[in-house]
Design a protein around this nucleic acid. Structure first.
Lengths: 189, 189
DNA sequence: GTATAAAACTAACAATTGTTAGTTTTGTTT
DNA sequence: AAACAAAACTAACAATTGTTAGTTTTATAC
């Protein structure tokens, strides 16, 4: 592993604080104290508080976008694609559960350009998800429930993993994947 | 319907703003502007910003606590109890989806006394939920999956209803209940 | 119409906010 | 040890924050 730059350390510390109190309630002085330095010193490494937020969120959103795109173009049936989506969410959650709090709760504090970029990615992601479910229903792989409800209920669980996973003591990733697939898919497929 | 007091109007307006930007990012001047008055005038009706937040959250939490307690003591099997929990969440969401945003995302900004009170209620709620699922598994009503995962996945969906429901155009409550019960329970029972 | 209560207003406060400028310290390379 | 870059510091700023005090307007009751 290459050593973490000071900037990356700051972003990681910020992710933890943002998770605890939300972006708006965390001050640069809070963040500095967590780093053991003064607030002004942070600006040797970052440009603004906003840059920290956008780095956290956009990086994660691009990870999901890229992962989803690979799943979409893959030569799999709907059920397997849904399994891969579950797997994607679990992988990202294990790697960066703190950052996901910002993605879920503080995206609206992004500024103009990044806000639009983020909203586009989220919309495309949901669209891809919906299309996979629709295809699955057409192919009789998935039960013919209301599509919106299936997408919503599945996605809401996956999106909330970041809150739940850290409270479980070291549940194994592969076991988690198997169980999540059971609970989320066995009901609808 | 009895007319809404000025204080209730303020709390309702605050719920909407808190949902959009979170408690910390909403200023008393924002809230005043939404009410068409000056910030100082708000204080003729409320004691503090904190009072608004705690009113929104504690009222809702008590509603859930009371609803859950009735379900727990009822003479129903586990499946029926879970159906009633789903129904409870949908009812509360239809009545006050804005306030639920604060309950879900801004509870950590409650101050000492109310924070403890809230956390106790939430803990008890989850405990009751878990007990119902456990009992259901013992009675062979519910499949023997990991209890934590069942509770987490179901509850995460119910807790996120407040975000999803307002975007659906007037989906009927009874239809929603039937479909949610299908999607959430058919997989595990 | 005069008195009373409700609800708005103006003006200001002390504290906190993100950020900048300029300087000093720390650590590494020659 | 001299030079240089990285990373910390102090001090301050302009703007914004929740809130208070005191006053005026608006609506209701007698």
């Amino acid at each position: 592993m290459k050593p973490e730059s000071r900037k990356e350390e700051i972003i990681r510390a910020a992710s933890i604080l943002f998770k605890e109190k939300g972006y708006s309630a965390v001050t640069m002085r809070d963040l500095a104290k967590a780093m053991g330095i003064k607030a002004a010193s942070l600006y040797n490494h970052i440009q603004s508080k906003q840059e920290i937020l956008s780095t956290i969120i956009i990086d994660l959103a691009e990870e999901f976008t890229s992962g989803m795109n690979q799943i979409v173009i893959s030569d799999k049936n709907a059920t397997e694609k849904l399994e891969n989506i579950i797997s994607l969410h679990i992988d990202v959650t294990l790697r960066n559960s703190d950052g996901l709090a910002s993605l879920n709760n503080d995206w609206m504090h992004l500024e103009e350009e990044n806000l639009q970029y983020f909203e586009k990615m989220r919309q495309d992601y949901e669209e891809s998800f919906r299309d996979i479910v629709k295809k699955g229903i057409e192919e009789k792989e998935i039960k013919s429930f209301n599509v919106e409800i299936i997408v919503f209920s599945t996605l809401s669980t996956l999106r909330t993993l970041y809150l739940w996973y850290p409270k479980q003591n070291n549940i194994d990733a592969s076991i988690l994947k198997r169980d999540m697939i059971s609970v989320l898919l066995k009901g609808i497929v």
